[in-house]
């Protein structure tokens, strides 16, 4: 990472210099510094500003400092130990909600590896007629998602413990749509510089490190037993897309596609059962 020119510090506004000089090394640009300072000042009481800036200077994610992250129309609580919802996830979740509005007879959705519960809560609050389930293996995540559910007052969402690597993770329940954002960073990449230091230092490794084994487990333990008609799995690499596609019966049952986020990165593998209404998922 190139070093920050010291002249940049001189260009910080003098009125807030004491706080913004702490933020600049983490934010790296004047624009981002002023944004983050503004968000800290608007969302926290003035007694906590200096603590927040000191924490931020140690690269603590801003969402952990402020305690929330906007996700579509809802505000999701964030706490250390649970992955912060990403904008990519928000983007495709909003698109999925628009898809579901078009399909008649969608009754239930399951989100595996739900974390803070952002995906089920957004779907549940936008589509109150659905039954939405969130499953996670982490106790921290379950506690936080339950808290989020209480504070947002969404009644049609429920969270339970479940491990994707166990056959009976769904306990025999059936769902129409499966969504998942499993850990998908291979360990070699996690150690390399590709992962932001703030992510590696402060976000749970459990929610980040994983690879093909998750997609195998998702197909075998979730997608096939749930008898779902469509699925969306978040991922980060092309080989994960191909691997998942190879596990499915593409000839007769499934149609699949690779979804790219608005930054042009491969982000999801999308699947739908051929000959059903759910084929509109090919437009995701």
């Amino acid at each position: 990472m190139p070093r920050i020119p010291p002249t940049l510090f001189h260009r910080l506004p003098t009125s807030t210099f004491k706080l913004s000089r702490l933020l600049l090394p983490t934010c790296r640009t004047l624009e981002q510094t002023s944004n983050e300072l503004r968000w800290i000042q608007t969302e926290l009481p003035s007694t906590k500003w200096s603590t927040a800036c000191v924490l931020r200077s140690r690269k603590v994610p801003l969402q952990y400092i402020l305690g929330t992250q906007p996700f579509g129309s809802i505000d999701v609580k964030c706490r250390p130990g649970v992955l912060i919802p990403r904008w990519e996830t928000e983007e495709y979740t909003v698109k999925i909600i628009d898809m579901i509005r078009y399909i008649e007879g969608v009754r239930s959705v399951v989100d595996v590896c739900t974390g803070s519960g952002c995906v089920p809560l957004l779907i549940g609050s936008e589509l109150p007629q659905l039954k939405v389930k969130g499953i996670d293996v982490s106790e921290h995540a379950l506690r936080l998602s339950e808290e989020n559910k209480q504070s947002l007052a969404v009644d049609n969402v429920s969270f339970t413990y479940g491990d994707v690597f166990q056959n009976d993770v769904l306990k025999g329940e059936k769902y129409d749509i499966v969504i998942s954002n499993p850990p998908y960073i291979p360990l070699t990449d996690y150690i390399s510089n590709e992962v932001e230091p703030s992510v590696r230092k402060y976000e749970p490794k459990l929610a980040l490190v994983g690879d093909l084994e998750f997609y195998k487990a998702l197909v075998e333990n979730v997608i096939i037993p749930s008898e779902c008609k469509a699925f969306v799995l978040e991922l980060g690499y092309m080989d994960q897309v191909q691997y998942t596609e190879n596990l499915l019966d593409l000839q007769n049952v499934w149609g699949t596609k690779c979804y790219f986020d608005s930054a042009g990165k491969v982000r999801c593998v999308v699947g739908w059962k051929r000959g059903t209404e759910y084929e509109i998922f090919k437009d995701l």
Binding site: E36, P61, R86
Partner: peptide, 16 residues
């Protein structure tokens, strides 16, 4: 969203 490089779980952006 700004910037090149990896996205998704690897980066935690707070601006939109």
């Amino acid at each position: 969203k700004g910037g090149q490089g990896p996205g998704g779980q690897k980066i935690n952006k707070c601006n939109s």
